[in-house]
Amino acid sequence: MTGFVFRKLLRTLFTLFLVVTFVFFVLRLTGDPVSAMMPDDTDPAILDELRKQWGLDRPLGVQYLEYWFNLLQGDFGNAYRDGRPAIEIVAERVPATLKLTLTAFAFIVIAGFPLGIFAAVNRGTAIDRGIMTISVTGFSLPNFFLGILLIFLLSVTLRWLPAYGSDHWYNLIMPVITLGTAGAAVIARFVRSSMLEVLNAPYIRACRARGMTERAIIWTVALPNAAIPTITIMGFMVGTLIGGSIVTETVFAWPGIGRLLIDAVTARELAVVQTVVMITAASMVFANLAVDLLYLVIDPRRRYASGTGE
């Protein structure tokens, strides 16, 4: 077991290394922070001075090595404008994003699974078709559009919810629906097809033949088996949520790292952008690691196939 986890962890670290490298070079090749920050008519001498001050005049390779050198010491660099450490700026935004994405993730599971199961059990009926139609609509709607639609409906027209803010629990409702709907729709479809496959398996018929009730079969036998393949999708879902949170946070003025990223990119705050990207990449990569490990826990066949069994 430890050997397996160790190998997975090594691969995870390598992925992170690639992400950091890629982000570093792409950011520096696509725009100059100094000219983005200063007014257009600034004296070029001043610009050069600033570049020198921030170390941007040196060769890229040197900057890159220095960046790694600092990173390994826990120094993520400072913001150009106010000189605060980038990690600090990002860290104060993380809780808001975590609150949003974790709630959205819970929403995806709580809405997606039952809908998928319900559709599978009522295969071919109006219920099934209804759920699937909603599901197609759900993941076809771009989430900025869904967000604006919700604001228009619930805030502007009905005046039930404030259009922005993040202090109360009810502020979460619209952002979570905006962020989670597409995921819930995908999960519902996936759970449905996975359940249908399992419900046709010989062991389900054998369960019926020994007098298990349909309800017990669905919840204690079919669902655990059908859930195994959906775990992969859940891993991907973490990535979708983080990506989606950028748009959602912008639409609802949510004070998370998504909005921070947008602002930082516009201002070419390289250290902040790099830190945000690294943190999101790390969470995706670790989510995938978690998925791999979760497989081992719930699927005995994998446990033994990977040589980690008892």
């Binding site: 054998a206 019926r208 033949a209 007098g211 088996n225 699927d299």
Partner: peptide, 22 residues
């Protein structure tokens, strides 16, 4: 449900596929 397993039971051709794999 009350009959199956109690009054009559059934075994199948592919036993390995007829047991819950996990």
């Amino acid at each position: 449900v009350s009959v199956r397993g109690r009054e009559a039971a059934m075994i199948f051709q592919d036993a390995s596929a007829s047991l819950n794999p996990i």
